[in-house]
Computed example of a mutant assay.
Amino acid sequence: MLSLKLPRLLNINQVPKVFREQGIVFGYRHPRSSAADCLLSVFQMTNETLNIWTHFVPACYFLGKLLALLYALDLCNDVYAWPLLAYMSTCCIYPFMSSCAHTFSTMSTQARHICYFFDYGSLSIYSLGSAVAYSAYVFPEEWVDGTFHRCYVPTAVFNAVLSTGLSCYSRLGAPYHHYNSDILERFPELEQPRFSKVLRTLAFVYPYLFDSIPLFYRLYLCAEDSCAEGVIPIHIQHVVFAFLTCFIFTTHLPERLAPGHFDYIGHSHQVFHVCGIAGTYFQMEAIMMDMASRHERLRASFPLPTLSQTVGLIGVCLVINLIIIGAFSKALYSTPESSKREKTT
Rank of each mutant, 00 (worst) to 15 (best):
residue 107 M to Q: 14
residue 87 Y to T: 10
residue 87 Y to W: 14
residue 126 Y to E: 01
residue 53 W to D: 01
residue 100 C to P: 05
residue 99 S to Q: 05
residue 136 A to Q: 13
residue 90 T to L: 00
residue 97 M to K: 03
residue 141 E to G: 02
residue 63 L to D: 10
residue 123 L to M: 10
residue 90 T to K: 02
residue 130 S to Q: 12
residue 142 E to C: 09
residue 53 W to G: 02
residue 60 C to W: 13
residue 67 L to W: 13
residue 119 D to A: 01
residue 72 A to L: 03
residue 64 G to N: 13
residue 127 S to P: 07
residue 57 V to H: 09
residue 145 D to A: 12
residue 74 D to M: 08
residue 136 A to P: 08
residue 82 W to A: 05
residue 143 W to N: 04
residue 72 A to C: 07
residue 87 Y to G: 06
residue 127 S to Q: 12
residue 135 S to T: 07
residue 112 R to Q: 06
residue 94 Y to C: 06
residue 105 S to M: 12
residue 50 L to R: 10
residue 49 T to E: 01
residue 64 G to W: 13
residue 69 L to R: 14
residue 93 I to F: 08
residue 79 V to T: 15
residue 117 F to V: 04
residue 54 T to E: 00
residue 89 S to I: 09
residue 120 Y to N: 03
residue 68 A to R: 14
residue 80 Y to N: 06
residue 142 E to G: 06
residue 137 Y to W: 11
residue 50 L to P: 04
residue 92 C to V: 15
residue 96 F to C: 08
residue 78 D to Q: 14
residue 108 S to E: 06
residue 65 K to Q: 13
residue 114 I to G: 01
residue 72 A to R: 14
residue 61 Y to D: 00
residue 99 S to M: 08
residue 84 L to H: 12
residue 137 Y to H: 08
residue 123 L to V: 15
residue 141 E to P: 03
residue 111 A to T: 13
residue 110 Q to T: 07
residue 103 T to C: 01
residue 135 S to G: 05
residue 108 S to F: 07
residue 86 A to I: 08
residue 64 G to S: 11
residue 58 P to Y: 10
residue 85 L to S: 00
residue 67 L to M: 14
residue 112 R to T: 05
residue 104 F to R: 03
residue 134 Y to R: 01
residue 81 A to Q: 09
residue 127 S to D: 01
residue 76 C to N: 15
residue 146 G to T: 15
residue 96 F to N: 07
residue 90 T to I: 07
residue 70 L to D: 08
residue 120 Y to A: 01
residue 82 W to P: 04
residue 83 P to D: 09
residue 118 F to Y: 10
residue 128 L to V: 12
residue 118 F to I: 03
residue 140 P to M: 09
residue 123 L to A: 12
residue 122 S to C: 12
residue 142 E to W: 06
residue 128 L to S: 08
